[in-house]
Nucleic acid binder design. Structure first.
Lengths: 112, 112
DNA sequence: ACATTTACTACGTCAGGCGTAGTACGATAG
DNA sequence: CTATCGTACTACGCCTGACGTAGTAAATGT
């Protein structure tokens, strides 16, 4: 009960990542920490899931990568969201509302 | 936008089916129609998805099958939910509330 | 009589998530 | 000064659930 089944979130990892990139360009480790923090530790994305999402989304043109210009720290790959990514994000948000509505027809809330 | 991406619902098909079996024992075709009706045609489950869910859930002990006793109509395989199935359903409902909360941290509602 | 609806089964493919493992660099601690 | 920890990844391969395609067959509608 403490953390979340991966099948649930399947297909929404991309959306989650895009939301964070919508705020500002970022990179794997930071995104990972932000997901954990924003979800109060309820969702901890797996590294492989995260990085393969980057690869997939870059291929799809939803994000674009660029290297950090050696600002003292370690070399990293940053990603920024593209126009297509924003459009995709908007679509997924709309879809989410619909899906949520559908699923909730089949869910019983219990306070027992 | 008219209907729902399957990846979203992935992992919740079982829950949806269990909800319907919780009302009364049923069989493939009926379940299928009920899902369509209850979702206002927004979600139409694929036959293969449905029947493989039956198989999987029976193997897991969440549902049990029995044959119709030839009441005039065609021979069918009915399923009823088991105790384990009810327990699983309850778990998934609780998980859903959690997951919904998590995902909504990353969703922007727009009325634009 | 013929098409459509009902009620399935079989088979194979695909994508996303994840386990496991390994690399490599910088910072901090003892 | 060296070991460990945190940071920042890449590679490989497996597993599961969803789904496309196809086929079977009885009952029902026209």
């Amino acid at each position: 009960m403490s953390n979340i089944s991966s099948d649930v979130i399947r297909g929404y990892n991309d959306t989650i990542i895009l939301y964070l990139l919508l705020q500002h360009p970022s990179y794997g480790y930071e995104i990972s920490k932000q997901i954990r923090n924003l979800s109060d530790g309820k969702y901890i994305i797996k590294e492989t899931t995260l990085y393969s999402a980057f690869t997939r989304m870059e291929k799809n043109g939803y994000i674009a990568s660029f290297s950090s210009d050696e600002n003292g720290g370690k070399r990293r790959t940053y990603y920024r969201i593209t126009e297509a990514g924003m459009e995709y994000y908007r679509l997924k948000c709309a879809e989410w509302e619909l899906t949520k509505e559908v699923i909730e027809h089949f869910i019983q809330k219990e306070d027992a």
